[in-house]
Design a protein around this nucleic acid. Sequence first.
DNA 1: TCTGGGGTCCTAGGACCC
DNA 2: TCTGGGGTCCTAGGACCC
Length: 415
Amino acid sequence: MIGLVDCNSFYCSCERVFNPQTRGQPIIVLSNNDGCAIAYSKEAKAIGFGQMCEPFFEVQERIKKHNVVVFSSNYTLYDDMSKRVMAILNNYTPNLEVYSVDEAFLSLDGYQKYDLLDYGKKIRKDILTSTGIPVGVGIAPTKVLAKAANKISKKNNGVCVLSNEADIDAALKVFPVKDLWGIGSAGTRKLNLLGIKTAYEFKMYKNDKMIQKILTKTGREIQEELRGVSCLEMQQVEDKEKIANTRSFGKDTYDKREIREAIATFTTKTAEKLRYQDSVCFGLSVFIHTNAFKDIEQYYGVATHNFITGTSDTVKMIKAAWHVLDKIYRPGLGYKKGGVILNGIVPKNENQMNLFSNDPDSSDKLSEVIDQINNRFGPRTVKSAACGTRQAWKLRADYISKRFTTNWNELLVIS
DNA sequence: TCTGGGGTCCTAGGACCC
DNA sequence: TCTGGGGTCCTAGGACCC
C-alpha cells in the first residue's frame, strides 16, 4: 500500500501558523512580484477564489469586499515548514518520497496488519500538533489511487483508505477523470471524446492501444494504476537534470546594465544550487523576453553556451552568461523577463576533463568558501560585484511576512 | 499601473552514421 | 523515369505537475 500526505493550502497554512488571528478568515498568497494569486485558504475558496494564477490587480476589488488577508510569497518560510513536516513523516515509513514542497508518498508495504485508517489519523494529528499544518491522508494500492484517495480525504475528515476492489470502484465511479493525477485539460478533452467521464470508465476502457496513442505511455500507466497494477515506483531523491532561475522584472527594463546585473544574479543562484547537489553543468542558456501582455512587437532571445569541461564556478558562469546575453540582446526594447537555465548536468566526480584544456576551475576553493560564508551569515553576504548593488530590476513583495523560523531577527514576538 | 516559477517525462523528427 | 535502409542520438515542443 502507498500513502500520500498532502498539506492543505500549504502556503496559506504556513502563514496562518504565525498569524493565528487569521483563523477563519480567507487568505491568499501571491506569486513572485505580487503578480498573481497562487494559493487560497479554504475560506477564500468558499467565496469563489481558486483559479490558479489569477492576476492580482483583477481580484483587488473582491479582496477588499471580502476582507481577504493577502501575503506575498515567502519561500524561505515555506521551505523550512516543509522540512519540518517531512521530518515527521519520516517516522511513519521506512521509505518516504518527498514529491513536492507540500506532499510526500509513504511506502506502507507490510503495514496491512495495522488499521490503516487509524494510522492515517495518527499521522494527521501528529503533524497538526507538531507544526500547525493541517494535512490530508490518502492510502491505496498504487500512487494514482493514493492521489485520488487523498483528494477524497479532503471532504472526508482528512483520511481516506481505499483498500479493496469494491471500495475502489465505488470511489472511482464518482471521481471525474479530469481530477486524476496526470490527466490535464488536453487529456480530459481527448478522453471525453471517447465518452469517458469518470475514473471508473477510464479504468474499464478496453482499447489500450487507443489510450497509448492519444495519451502516450503516461496515460497507459495511469490506467494500469487505476486497475491496481503499480507502474509508478517510489523514487529516490535524485539530482536535478535542469536547474533554472528566471524572474519577471519589477518593471519593463531598457537599461542593459540592469539586465546584466539580473542575469549575473540568476547565474549566481543556479551555480549555488548546482554546487549544493555536487554537480557541474556543460550548458548554460540565457533568455530575455519583452512584455508578453503588452500589445507591442515581441522579442524572445535565447542562446546557449557550452562549456568544454563541466563547471560550477560562479565567476566562469557569469562570464559565459554575459557573453550569451551580448549575442541575444537587442537594444531599444523594454525587457520584462529573463532567466538562466543550466543543462547537461552531471555529478562532479563524473566530470569529463579535457585533455587539452588549460582552463581548470581555478576558483573551486573560492566558491566553496563563499558558500560557507553565505550559509553562516545569510544568503548573498558575499557575491560577485557583477550582480550589482541597486538591483533596480527587483521584484515587488509588498505583503511579505517574516522569516519566522530561519532568522533570529524575525522571530515571532508575543506581547 | 499591475499578468509566477521550477521541474519531469514522452515523442516526433532531424542529423548523422554505416 | 528511376534516387536504400536501418540504426542511434539529440533536441524542441507538448503535456503535465505543484
